[in-house]
């Protein structure tokens, strides 16, 4: 009976752990707000640790990442068909954000794609920034006052 409880507890624990999000990236917009980009912890374990090196392709290509972002944007009703308004960055968790790095799974891939909107359209301005993990997951965003 105790064993059954333990198993149940483990199952519950695991499902909670599965849903746990970690902050992969934090960006600051001016002084007022900061945006945290969260991905499920397990997403970071899905791909091998990767560091940029000549001749070693990223686990997810720029085109795959852009395709994922376009779908995510469309789901939010945003039109980002115009490439001239996008900036696509391959970047990593800011090495100076030590607190964030401590909470990431050890040895995980800290690189990701960030797609930012550069245009002036009122509908998209400020709103548009998508993060895609190397496993292809789109991060959820949490806006918080930076101070």
């Amino acid at each position: 009976m105790r064993a059954a409880y333990l198993i149940l507890f483990l199952i519950l624990f695991c499902s909670v752990a599965k849903a746990e999000n970690v902050i992969l990236h934090r960006s600051y917009f001016g002084r007022a707000d900061r945006v945290d980009f969260l991905v499920p912890r397990e997403e970071l374990r899905k791909v091998r640790p990767w560091e940029p090196a000549a001749g070693t392709d990223a686990p997810l290509s720029r085109s795959q990442a852009l395709e994922i972002v376009r779908k995510a944007a469309l789901a939010e009703g945003l039109d980002i068909s115009d490439d001239s308004k996008l900036a696509i960055s391959l970047t990593r968790t800011n090495p100076f954000e030590e607190e964030l790095i401590k909470r990431l799974p050890p040895g995980c891939c800290r690189w990701f794609y960030l797609v930012n909107f550069m245009g002036e359209d009122a509908a998209l301005k400020g709103k548009f920034s998508f993060l895609v993990s190397m496993s292809g997951a789109v991060a959820s965003k949490a806006v918080a006052p930076s101070q």
Binding site: P52, A54, S84, A87, I88, S89, L90, T91, R92, M118
Partner: peptide, 19 residues
């Protein structure tokens, strides 16, 4: 960067594509 003498002291931070 790798071909430079101090190349190993430079660490890629971001790589950005725009038009």
């Amino acid at each position: 960067i790798g071909s430079k003498r101090m190349g190993n002291k430079l660490e890629l931070e971001s790589f950005t594509e725009t038009l």
